[in-house]
C-alpha cells in the first residue's frame, strides 16, 4: 500500500470508490443532498483536507484535495433515471457510516461495495407489492372490491412490462409510453366485458405504479432545500413522463 501512496494510486482508488458509491446511491433513490453529504464525510475520513462535491441527478463531480499537493477531480455521468431500491440505500449508508468512524483499507472497501451491489431484492416481493399497491389505490380512489381485484391482476401485468420493456425501450419516455399503452389495452379490454367493472378506477390504481408522483414531490423538495438544478431537472422530466403516461393510456381508449 505504501507504494500505492507513493505513486498516487491510492488517492485515485479512493476517489474511484467514492464515485462508485455516489453513483450507486443516486441510482438507488437516495436524495441529492444526502449523497453530497455522504461523499464529503467519506472523503474527509480517507484523509482529504478539502472536498468539493457537486451532485445533480444526472452527474456527480468530485474534487478531492489531500493536502500534499495531490488534488484529483473525476466526473460520473448518470444516465439511468434512478429507481427506488431502499435496501441498497440502507446498506450503502451503513457501509459509509462504518467507514466514517473507522476507514476500511481501500481493498476491503472495494470488496464491501461489490458485496452490497450484489444483493438483489426478491422479484416475487416486487410483483406482490405492485398487485397490493394497484388494488389498494383502485379502492382508495373510489373503486369497488371487484375493481381492486382486477387492478391487482393488471398490476402484475404492469410489473411484468416494467421488468421487460426497460431492456428494449429507447429511453424512459418511450418506456413509460409502452408500459402505459400495454396496461391500458388490458384495462379497456376488461371494461368492455362487463358494466360492473369501472375501467377508470382500475386505471388510476395502476397509474399509481407508473406515475412519477414521488419523483415530482422530491423535486419540489429539492428546490426548497436549495438543490435547484436537480429539482428543476427532475420536475421537468416528471411532467414529460406524466404526459407520456397519459398518451399511453389514451391510445387504447381511442382505438376502442
Amino acid at each position: 500500500m505504501s507504494r500505492d501512496i507513493e505513486n498516487g494510486d491510492y488517492y485515485r482508488k479512493v476517489l474511484d470508490q467514492l464515485l462508485i458509491i455516489g453513483e450507486s446511491m443516486l441510482t438507488s433513490g437516495a436524495s441529492v443532498n444526502r449523497v453530497e453529504e455522504m461523499l464529503r464525510k467519506m472523503g474527509k475520513s480517507y484523509g482529504a483536507i478539502r472536498m468539493d462535491v457537486f451532485v445533480i441527478t444526472s452527474c456527480v463531480i468530485v474534487t478531492i484535495d489531500f493536502g500534499n499537493g495531490i488534488e484529483l477531480t473525476q466526473t460520473r455521468r448518470i444516465l439511468s433515471p434512478g429507481g427506488s431500491e431502499f435496501y441498497r440505500v440502507e446498506d450503502f449508508t451503513k457501509l459509509c457510516d462504518k467507514c466514517c468512524h473507522e476507514p476500511l483499507s481501500i481493498e476491503k472497501f472495494t470488496k464491501e461495495i461489490e458485496a452490497v451491489k450484489k444483493v438483489e431484492y426478491p422479484e416475487k416481493a416486487i410483483y406482490i407489492g405492485s398487485a397490493l399497491a394497484a388494488s389498494g389505490f383502485a379502492v382508495f380512489f373510489g373503486g369497488s372490491l371487484l375493481d381492486g381485484i382486477l387492478a391487482a391482476l393488471v398490476g402484475l401485468f404492469t410489473c411484468y412490462c416494467q421488468a421487460h420493456v426497460g431492456h428494449i425501450a429507447f429511453n424512459h419516455v418511450v418506456y413509460l409510453l409502452m408500459c402505459a399503452f400495454l396496461s391500458g389495452l388490458v384495462i379497456t379490454g376488461m371494461g368492455a366485458i362487463s358494466e360492473n367493472i369501472h375501467p377508470d378506477m382500475i386505471m388510476i390504481g395502476d397509474i399509481m405504479l407508473l406515475i412519477p408522483g414521488i419523483a415530482m414531490t422530491n423535486s419540489v423538495r429539492d428546490i426548497l432545500v436549495g438543490d435547484t438544478i436537480s429539482g428543476l431537472m427532475r420536475l421537468i422530466e416528471t411532467i414529460v413522463w406524466a404526459g407520456a403516461l397519459a398518451c399511453g393510456f389514451m391510445i387504447p381508449m381511442w382505438i376502442m
Binding site: F86, Y87, I126, I128, S135
Partner: peptide, 22 residues
C-alpha cells in the same frame, strides 16, 4: 375506514415495490 385500509395496503405495496426490507 375503507380509504384508511386501502391507503395502508397501498403503502405496504409501495414499500415492497421500493425494495424496503421486510
Amino acid at each position: 375506514w375503507i380509504q384508511l385500509i386501502a391507503g395502508t395496503v397501498g403503502a405496504i405495496g409501495f414499500g415492497l415495490v421500493f425494495g424496503l426490507r421486510m
